[in-house]
């Protein structure tokens, strides 16, 4: 890859993030002028820096409703894309994404327990907490099954698929036993939605994403080794089984947190890493941070579509990502076949 290309891609990523966030803050069910949007943001970040010539209502729309949602979309998009990029190496499967290994299904199961059966026993954090615990349980189950049946990439995938089936069956049972009137919330959650974003909640995904991202970037060279195959990686002196287990655990925890706050959003983790590799090559020193950046852009824009296409109805963002991602994937496959 030419020397200037990574810098160009990084600049492009930052520019796109800025554009996506601007669009996310500026557009919505209620019309708010761009000047007001940035006035509110500037005033909140640096109080007194601009003259306040907007209503309290508009300020609330921008700061309390849109901004936390855009930030959550950026965090979740980044998290899912990074997880996808790493899992595609860990499992040596180009179709791997955060939902492949049962973690999302476990998270969904936990969320359903909260939504239909326990209620908000810990307040607004109940659903994310239960979803994370469900994801954690699924992660533990996958690791246990993999240890029991052999630690290869294939075994990891098969274990994940098996755990996903069990978790999905359990979820369906819980839905069947639950109140039909609350099922709407469950469906919305399972299809993915960012409408519940609030400032106090954002600390958890932000912190987990930051720590995971730093750790994964520091391990990027080892991930490159793993991408060459188990034998080559072992020849390079990498502890393949342990590294795979570590990477899976970190990505599973990251997925768990993202799923906990957004529900199950598909295709971001599958599509974005492929697009990034198409332009940035296969060095994970570049792939991981760029996947995070473009994942953010993708989900912020998808969420923007979700809340404006059918306004005032809030469409689940998973519908948008699935639709666009599916078409994009078909184009990607056909392009590769032609190439």
């Amino acid at each position: 890859m030419p020397h200037g290309k990574p810098i160009l891609l990084t600049l492009l990523a930052f520019l796109l993030i800025l554009v996506a966030i601007t669009a996310g803050l500026s557009l919505g069910a209620a019309a708010v002028p761009l000047k007001t949007v940035w006035g509110v943001v500037a005033d909140r970040l640096v109080p007194g820096s601009v003259t306040r010539d907007w209503s309290a209502g508009r300020e609330s729309i921008v700061w309390d409703v849109r901004f936390p949602r855009v930030v959550l979309a950026a965090l979740v998009g980044a998290g899912l894309a990074v997880v996808g990029a790493v899992l595609q190496v860990v499992t040596r499967n180009p179709l791997a994404d955060p939902h492949l290994l049962g973690v999302s299904s476990g998270g969904a199961c936990g969320a359903i327990v909260a939504l239909l059966h326990t209620g908000m026993i810990f307040g607004l954090i109940t659903v994310p907490l239960f979803a994370f615990l469900g994801a954690l349980a699924a992660t533990g189950a996958v690791i246990a099954v993999t240890r029991f049946s052999g630690r290869s990439a294939e075994r990891l995938i098969l274990s994940g698929v098996a755990v996903a089936f069990v978790a999905t069956a359990l979820s369906n049972l819980l839905i069947y036993l639950g109140d039909p009137r609350a099922v709407q919330s469950v469906v919305f959650w399972m299809l993915g939605g960012l409408g519940l974003a609030q400032w106090p909640h954002l600390l958890y995904p932000a912190l987990v994403l930051f720590v995971s991202l730093v750790w994964l970037i520091l391990r990027a060279r080892e991930i490159n080794g793993l991408a060459m195959g188990d034998e080559t990686a072992a020849t390079l002196g990498l502890p393949v089984a342990r590294l795979r287990a570590q990477l899976f655990t970190v990505t599973a925890l990251l997925t768990g947190v993202m799923v906990a706050f957004s529900g199950a959003i598909g295709f971001i983790g599958l599509m974005v890493p492929h697009i990034v590799r198409l332009f940035a090559g296969s060095d994970h020193v570049r792939v991981i941070p760029l996947s995070a950046a473009f994942g953010s852009v993708a989900l912020v824009l998808a969420d923007l579509a979700a809340r404006t296409l059918m306004a005032p109805e809030d469409m689940p963002v998973g519908v948008i990502t699935g639709f666009v991602g599916g078409i994009g994937f078909i184009l990607l496959i056909s392009r590769r076949n032609r190439g």
Partner: peptide, 12 residues
Amino acid sequence: GTVNPEQIIAAN
């Protein structure tokens, strides 16, 4: 049906 939070604030 459902209403977007933004619309509640905007409608005041």
